[in-house]
């Protein structure tokens, strides 16, 4: 596990830019690079499929695991199709379904977080965005298999946390994780979305700040210019991090995993 001080010279605003960079790898790239035999699972089993969440079963160094992540897409066409990585309730219900399935078959769960937030839309509200997220939070807290989350890009609001109630949470060096997008934050507090740069500095959303405050277990180093500059180096870091974390967590019993995860969030921000 890489636990070190990130480069201080890069300010929070620049990191937000790096985290949102279109060239940054997405969930599909991580699955390609780190897993084999990926089998994509679709649908919430209620009547809808949300492509803003990609999930399925795969092998990680031979070990069957369940992988779930926000999907933004690579080009504009994909962005639109995947709703820029902003899930609807059906996406969260699919994610939860896959997690319960993982628990049934004793598979560890690995989630990749990268979303502007849950989608603020008409149908999303009609289908119970709040209820879907709350259900994820509640159910994830009691899963009896290892859950590891990696924030790879931007993790904003409950829409990110909904797949992030994990035993261990890691962040890529330039990833950000916060209560809301800096624009939303500025617009709520100062009624001025253009002050997002000020917001970035105040929000304490960088990996370094969150590690210091005890929200995450570790930081995964990125090459110069971010993981987008040299993905292979970044992938290797994530691979190492996942191996170490899985080795540790797979040794624990289901009840212990459940208890430790509960206590971790119970004692967070007390």
């Amino acid at each position: 596990m890489e636990r070190f001080q990130t480069k201080k010279t890069i300010d929070a605003y620049t990191r937000v830019g790096l985290a949102r960079d279109k060239n940054r790898p997405g969930i599909a790239d991580y699955i390609d690079a780190l897993f084999t035999d990926f089998f994509c699972c679709r649908g919430d089993r209620i009547g809808l499929e949300d492509e803003a969440i990609l999930g399925g079963v795969a092998r990680f160094h031979d070990l069957p695991v369940t992988v779930i992540g926000h999907r933004k897409g690579k080009d504009l066409e994909e962005n639109v199709r995947f709703n820029f990585g902003m899930p609807q309730p059906e996406g969260y219900r699919k994610a939860l379904r896959l997690m319960k399935q993982a628990e049934k078959f004793g598979r560890p769960i690995i989630t990749f977080i990268d979303t502007p937030g849950a989608y603020p839309g008409l149908a999303a509200e009609e289908h119970g965005q709040s209820q879907a997220i709350a259900e994820c939070l509640a159910e994830m807290s009691s899963l009896k298999v290892p859950v590891i989350s990696i924030v790879t890009g931007e993790g904003n609001s409950g829409g990110a946390l909904a797949i992030g109630v994990a035993n261990e949470i890691y962040m890529l060096e330039h990833a950000v994780y916060s209560i809301l997008s800096p624009e939303g934050f500025a617009s709520i507090l100062w009624k001025d979305a253009s002050r997002s740069k000020d917001a970035c500095e105040l929000m304490k959303l960088t990996a370094d700040e969150l590690y210091k405050a005890g929200f995450i277990e570790g930081i995964i180093r990125e090459p110069e210019g971010g993981i987008q500059a040299d993905p292979e180096v970044g992938f290797a870091g994530i691979d190492k991090c996942l191996q170490d974390s899985l080795q540790k967590l797979c040794a624990l019993s289901g009840t212990r995993l459940q208890k430790e995860r509960y206590e971790k969030f119970r004692n967070m921000a007390r």
Binding site: L137, S141, S157, M268
Partner: peptide, 13 residues
């Protein structure tokens, strides 16, 4: 900030 966000997980759990 993040301290508020985490209350969602804490209360739900």
């Amino acid at each position: 900030g993040m301290f508020s966000l985490m209350q969602m997980a804490k209360t739900s759990a």
